[in-house]
Amino acid sequence: MTFNPLEQRGIPLDRQLRNWRELDVAPIDPDRCDPYTRCRIITMNGIEIEAVLFSHQMARHCPDQDVRRQLARTRYIEQQQQKVVNWLLPGVSSVLETTIAYEQVAVDLTAWVARMEPDPYLKQAYQFGVLEDFDHLYRYANLYEMIEHRKAEEIVQGLTEVMPGRPTPYHHRDAVDNVRDPYDRDRADPLSKLHALTIMSAEQQTMNFYMNVGPQYMEPIARRLYQEIGLVEEEHVTHYESLVDPGETWWEQLVNHEYNECYLYYSFMEQEPDPRVKAIWELHLGMELEHLRIACDLMRRHDGRDPEQVVAPRLPDVLTFEPNKEYLRGLLDTQIDLTTLGAGYVREAHERFEAMQRTVNSDGGPPSELVMEQHQHLYGRDYRVESAGRPA
């Protein structure tokens, strides 16, 4: 079925405001929910936070008071949406359990986008990044077993493998080598724009999450690991945000943000097995359709262009959370030894990479390796699960 959000009527903005009772949604049950329901929640939380942050930045650069007022009205609704989505996560889950779910999002969301991305250069960017998130999941799984004496498998439930990726110590690169070449806004496939915005938003939220929760731990090794991986997430945000054409106007970016929210809420509504969560995705889609209409009107009025010039005439095939085990194993076999150089990729260590490694990994070694050493000392092994009929 084709779905063109530019032609759909949403919920009028003056009917979108919710009271405290409506915002007080019951959280999911972490022991009974589909792991990908939790992944969809984490993803949409990042998407809504990006929408709010972008709206604030646009307002700070906009001299038109009427536009600033319109952004403020829509932004408040986006904030209510974010509260509903994020509050679906259960308070009984520990920070580490939520962290493992965050990395499951990073692995399976980025792998799916890499599989579907039509542009070879952008595809390579996602393939490169996902092997690092894959290793982060593995490192946190070892920490989780050490601190909480439980298996990450209880969270990912076999949908995502927990095994080594590109080793986390090798993720530390000179900052200039994290900047990729952007797509061309006039030539890029509309799907490529949605992919870039989605992964950038998800990685940005992961970065913010680790920045805030890392110091909450008492265990020194946990504090250190969150600090290390939190800095890798900074590299990832730089990596992904640089894919977006900086020549896009504010109005064009606003339409892209709203269109992407429609795309994701529609995608998740189509596949959500939890009827209560599905109803939230459907409600928010109705709200976002109106936000998109408002953004399109602003673009026509202030940018002198029609939104059809920058977005697809209909939504692409739905974005799907699903296992990507074979795809990831293929990437591990062929790309684990890659690093970046300028806007490209190489297999040989180079001067900037080696200088960064000497600096950040000196004096005691990287926390991601210390986690493995402590886990080996406690259990005589690292964290592994049986998968696909063989040790992972």
Rank of each mutant, 00 (worst) to 15 (best):
W250I: 12
V237T: 13
P273D: 09
W250T: 13
N260W: 01
I280W: 05
E235I: 06
W251D: 08
H239D: 11
E252C: 10
V244L: 14
E272F: 01
P275L: 04
Y259I: 05
L243S: 08
V255R: 11
D274L: 02
H239I: 05
L254P: 02
E272V: 00
D245L: 08
E261Y: 03
L243G: 09
A279G: 03
Q253T: 15
E252N: 09
E248C: 13
R276P: 00
Y259L: 07
Y266Q: 14
P275S: 10
W250D: 15
E270V: 01
P273T: 06
G247K: 13
Y266S: 12
L264Y: 00
W250A: 15
E248P: 02
L264G: 04
E235C: 07
E270C: 05
S267N: 04
Y263P: 01
L264D: 03
A279D: 07
Y263M: 05
V255H: 09
E241W: 07
W251T: 05
S242A: 12
L243E: 09
E241V: 11
P246E: 10
L254Y: 15
T238Y: 06
F268Y: 14
D245Q: 10
K278T: 00
E241Y: 11
L254W: 09
W250H: 12
A279C: 03
K278Y: 00
C262G: 02
V244P: 01
F268I: 01
D245V: 10
H239C: 07
E252W: 03
Y265A: 03
R276F: 00
E241H: 10
W251C: 04
Y259G: 08
W251V: 06
E241M: 14
C262L: 03
S242V: 03
N260D: 05
Y266F: 06
T238S: 12
V255P: 06
Y240V: 03
Y263E: 04
H257Q: 14
T249M: 08
D245R: 12
S242E: 08
V255W: 05
W250Q: 15
Y240H: 13
C262Q: 02
E235G: 14
Y263R: 06
Y265V: 01
R276M: 03
W250S: 15
R276H: 05
Y265W: 10
E272R: 02
V244R: 14
L254A: 11
Y240P: 06
Y259Q: 10
E272H: 02
E252D: 11
E241T: 13
P275V: 03
R276D: 05
A279K: 11
E261N: 14
E234C: 12
P275Q: 08
E248Y: 10
N256H: 15
G247C: 08
Y240A: 06
T238R: 14
P246K: 10
N260C: 12
P273E: 08
Y265F: 15
H239N: 12
